[in-house]
Computed example of a mutant assay.
Amino acid sequence: MPYPPGYGTYTNRYVQAEETSMKLQNIITLILFLFLSSCGMKTKKGLTKNYDENKTEILELKDYYNEIVPKGFIIRIRYNSSDNIDFFVYQPIENSEKLETLFQQWNLDMDDYEPENPRSDYDKKYNGLTNSFKEVKEKLNWTSKTFIDLYNKLENVNCMGISNRYPTEIEYGFKGMGAFSYLIFDENLNTELQEKYSDDCSQMFYKENVVLNYGSGAIGSYCTPEFKRTK
């Protein structure tokens, strides 16, 4: 069946109009996303204000967490919600000073997690010796109540995550693709260490035993201009 005169031109214009409309929709969606994201972005001012207002509870959280983590283990946890976490557990290797990855899962739904079985070679190599959340909890002697209590303690100081690596790191919140956090040492930092942990980039000494930290994500700048000191 022959097409009417001008059919090809009309079709091309229609396709171009559709593509333009789609691009416009994508741009509007991106602008809205960036606007909504920026509304919840954290700042250095908020970071310091939060510490000053919740200092006692933040330091108590540090001590509490280091008490519940078994000796020799390093555990990093970030709450995406009350029942969804990023959870990384590293255990000591016998007769060694090194650690090995026991368990590693992003976006773990604690109420509905089913480990993949059989495990892929990639999962075995990069995500730990086990993918059983139940097994890990038993090894750590953690219960569901442990996770609830920890979530509530973090919420109480407006924070979202914690790690017991030295110094203890307590995550405050996101800025862009990165996140602000507190590095809390056991002792107050002397002048030399204060300078060491102020690099005009990702770390800045705040006061006493506290360093402000900015960790970038997979993409984005490693530095934050908010940590640039005035000379």
Rank of each mutant, 00 (worst) to 15 (best):
K42W: 05
T43F: 11
K44M: 03
K45M: 04
L47V: 01
L47E: 03
L47C: 02
T48E: 14
K49Y: 13
K49D: 05
K49A: 13
Y51K: 07
Y51F: 15
E53H: 04
N54E: 07
N54A: 01
K55N: 03
T56V: 04
E57T: 06
L59Y: 02
E60F: 06
E60Y: 02
E60M: 11
L61V: 02
Y64N: 03
Y65Q: 05
Y65C: 02
Y65F: 12
N66L: 10
E67K: 13
I68W: 07
P70M: 13
P70G: 14
K71A: 01
K71G: 00
K71L: 14
K71C: 00
G72L: 06
G72V: 03
F73V: 05
I74H: 12
N80H: 07
N80S: 05
S81G: 00
D83C: 15
D83Q: 15
D83Y: 14
N84I: 10
I85T: 14
V89H: 10
V89C: 06
V89M: 07
P92Q: 09
E94W: 09
N95S: 10
N95G: 07
S96D: 08
S96R: 11
S96C: 12
S96H: 13
L99K: 15
L102W: 07
W106C: 11
L108N: 03
D111V: 07
D112Y: 08
Y113Q: 09
Y113V: 04
Y113L: 09
Y113P: 08
E116R: 14
N117Y: 15
N117P: 04
N117I: 15
P118H: 10
R119V: 15
R119S: 06
S120R: 08
D121V: 03
Y122M: 05
Y122P: 01
D123R: 14
K124D: 04
K125G: 03
G128F: 14
G128Q: 05
L129G: 00
L129T: 09
T130D: 07
T130I: 01
S132L: 07
S132E: 02
F133W: 08
E135T: 06
E135N: 02
V136Q: 04
K137T: 06
E138Q: 12
E138P: 11
E138M: 11
E138T: 11
W142H: 02
T143R: 10
T143P: 12
S144F: 08
K145L: 14
F147K: 12
F147Q: 07
I148P: 02
D149K: 10
Y151R: 03
Y151I: 08
Y151T: 08
K153R: 15
L154D: 00
E155H: 12
V157Y: 03
V157D: 00
V157T: 09
V157K: 10
N158Q: 09
N158D: 07
N158Y: 10
M160N: 01
M160I: 12
G161T: 04
N164L: 01
R165G: 02
P167S: 03
T168W: 04
T168P: 12
E171Y: 14
